[in-house]
Structure formats: structure tokens, C-alpha cells
């Protein structure tokens, strides 16, 4: 699904990514873990073209990722992103946040998008918050809305940048419990964290250090083991 070869990234003279190689197969749940400043978020941002890269290649399902190419728009509609700070649109309701992409980017009928959004909100336990504004929600609720927003376009790949970084430990676990359901529906998930407890929910762990992958571990994911 994702092929990263020799990925290099400079911020000015600072060499952040020093030749990252990684492959992610369809349906995998992969965690990129590493200390702050190791470049893990940069990899994620390069994958969906939010960040340009200085060298190497990234391909998603055989399509080359180039943040300036016209193909980037299509890639972004198929690669959903969840952010640490949620980045919900504060001037729109929960429902409007979720249908924004399908209706205004993909041109789907509004009624169908609303029906799907309602289903997703119910699945993340926020059916009653449909008309609320993001500012009226807790951090955990906002992140669940952000996940529903990411899922509404039925993307084959989800990238999550420190999805529990702004949440307490209990809420973090609630968010991570959503992973097996997503994986069961065939989605590929790549998330970034610096917390080993959160990384334990992934079936595969890429350890990043000083801009390079230093280990690639497969493990029994915590939640799947428990269930």
C-alpha cells in the first residue's frame, strides 16, 4: 500500500529524515514511534503531501506522492488524516465538520453524506452531539469527531499524528479501542506516537531514531489480544 524509499527531508540546514525506508501492506496497523524530533510526524505529513520532501520516493498504491502534482488532491481524498490538535472547524457544527469533505470536495449528495455522518457519529458514541460546536466538546469527543470526519470518505488509508497526544490516559484508551473496528473494515492505519503504551495497540512498530528507522518489530497488538 505505502512504499517509502530513501526518504530525505531538510528543514533549512537541519537534516530531519536521513533515508527512511518502509513498506506498509494493505490492512496493517502500523505505529511509528520515537522520541520528539526524530521525524515521525514529518514522515506522516510527507505521505499525504502536507510536507514536501527533499529526496527519495513515496508511492501509495503505485501512485507517486508529489505535493505539487495534480494527483495530490485525489491522494488526499483517499488518505485521511487525524491530527493531534483535532483541527476541527470551530465555525461549523459536528455534523457540518464531518460532511464538509464528501459534499464540498467529492461532490457527494448532501443527504447521503448526512446519513453516513450520522451512522459514524453513532459508532463513535456521539449521536447526540450532532449539532454541537467543537468548542462544546471535550478533547476526547473532539478527537472522536475528527476520526468520524476522517472515516466519512471511506478512505483505504488513515494517518493519525499523535491521535492521543492531547488526551488523558483513559480517553486515549477509548480512542485506541476504535482501531480494531477500523482494521476489520479493511483500512490501513499508520499512527505516530511517542508513548509506548499507545504503540502497544499496533501490530507493527517502526522505531525511528535520528531520522532513520532503526527497528521494525511485529507484535501481538494489546487490544486484539484482549478481545
Amino acid at each position: 500500500m505505502i512504499e517509502i524509499r530513501g526518504l530525505q527531508k531538510f528543514f533549512g540546514t537541519h537534516h530531519v529524515l536521513k533515508g527512511v525506508d518502509a513498506s506498509v501492506a494493505k490492512g496493517e496497523v502500523v505505529c511509528i514511534i520515537g522520541p520528539s524530533g526524530s521525524g515521525k510526524s514529518t514522515i506522516l505529513r510527507c505521505i499525504n503531501g502536507l510536507e514536501s520532501y527533499s529526496g527519495g520516493t513515496i508511492d501509495i498504491d503505485g501512485v507517486h506522492v508529489d505535493h505539487q502534482a495534480p494527483s495530490i488532491k485525489k491522494i488526499r481524498t483517499e488518505v485521511a488524516m487525524v491530527f493531534q490538535r483535532f483541527n476541527l472547524f470551530p465555525h461549523r457544527s459536528v455534523l457540518e465538520n464531518i460532511i464538509e469533505g464528501p459534499v464540498f470536495v467529492k461532490g457527494e449528495p448532501r443527504a447521503a453524506a448526512i446519513d453516513h455522518a450520522k451512522e459514524l457519529l453513532a459508532s463513535v458514541g456521539l449521536a447526540e452531539k450532532i449539532d454541537a460546536r467543537p468548542s462544546q466538546l471535550s478533547g476526547g469527543q473532539q478527537q472522536r469527531v475528527a476520526i468520524a470526519r476522517a472515516l466519512v470518505s471511506r478512505p483505504p488509508l488513515i494517518l493519525a499524528d499523535e491521535p492521543t497526544g492531547n488526551l488523558d490516559s483513559v480517553t486515549s484508551i477509548e480512542i485506541m479501542k476504535l482501531l480494531p473496528e477500523l482494521q476489520a473494515s479493511g483500512m490501513t492505519i499508520v499512527f505516530v506516537t511517542h508513548e509506548p503504551d499507545i504503540a502497544a495497540y499496533a501490530a507493527r512498530k517502526l522505531l525511528l531514531k535520528d531520522g532513520a528507522v532503526v527497528s521494525d518489530l511485529r507484535q501481538q497488538p494489546m487490544l486484539l489480544e484482549a478481545s
Partner: peptide
């Protein structure tokens, strides 16, 4: 307007005009 809003809009696949109209200018 918070840069995170711009990133969220771009990550959704919004082009510049749509992002300005739907996300940035209303805020």
C-alpha cells in the same frame, strides 16, 4: 486563522479557493 485549520482543509483534498471560502474566510 490557526494554521491547523489550513492543514485540515488541505488534508481533506480542498484546493486553495475552496479552502479560503469554506474554512479560512469565515473564521
Amino acid at each position: 486563522v490557526d494554521h491547523g485549520q489550513v492543514e485540515a482543509a488541505r488534508a481533506m483534498g480542498m484546493g486553495w479557493p475552496l479552502m479560503m471560502r469554506r474554512v479560512v474566510l469565515p473564521q
